[in-house]
């Protein structure tokens, strides 16, 4: 696959209260961004089980984006902290699995940050494009 034609497939888990609302705001503001992220809505970023991340990679995602409320703003008080800790360990584990940890990204996007959501999506899409297809997706082993 050439770099030109490679369109990263990114699964996004967005919390209902901040980030999903932020993504909606990008829409109502008609802020344009890349169509590579497929959003799955969850009530809280704390709902994002590491299992979902691994499942997404297993099914061929080139990247996984998790977005939740800024620290202190969680609709459920502390769900985002749990996610931050989980994803920190997940990143270390992805490294052990030989998967570039940059393929997993955790971002805080508030309901007022439509432009920021668009920026995050664009930036992540380009970073993943540079990284190329997921080794799981492409099935490339190190042998």
């Amino acid at each position: 696959m050439t770099e030109e034609s490679f369109e990263p497939k990114i699964v996004g888990f967005l919390c209902n209260w901040c980030s999903y609302a932020g993504a909606d705001l990008a829409g109502t503001s008609r802020t344009k961004y890349k169509p590579n992220v497929r959003v799955i809505r969850v009530m809280c970023s704390g709902r994002v089980d590491p299992l979902f991340v691994l499942k997404a990679f297993e099914k061929g995602a080139d990247g996984v984006l998790i977005a939740g409320c800024h620290p202190g703003d969680c609709h459920y008080m502390s769900g985002n902290y749990k996610t931050r800790r989980r994803m920190e360990l997940m990143r270390r584990m992805l490294e052990q699995f030989g998967i570039n940890p940059e393929r997993l990204r955790l971002e805080w996007v508030s309901a007022a940050e439509g432009a920021r959501f668009a920026h995050v999506v664009n930036d992540m899409t380009e970073k993943i494009r540079e990284l190329g297809p997921s080794p799981i997706n492409g099935g490339a082993t190190d042998e």
Partner: peptide, 10 residues
């Protein structure tokens, strides 16, 4: 329960 799911994910 408010349905945040943090327990389910843990």
């Amino acid at each position: 329960c408010k349905g945040c799911g943090v327990c389910g994910a843990a």
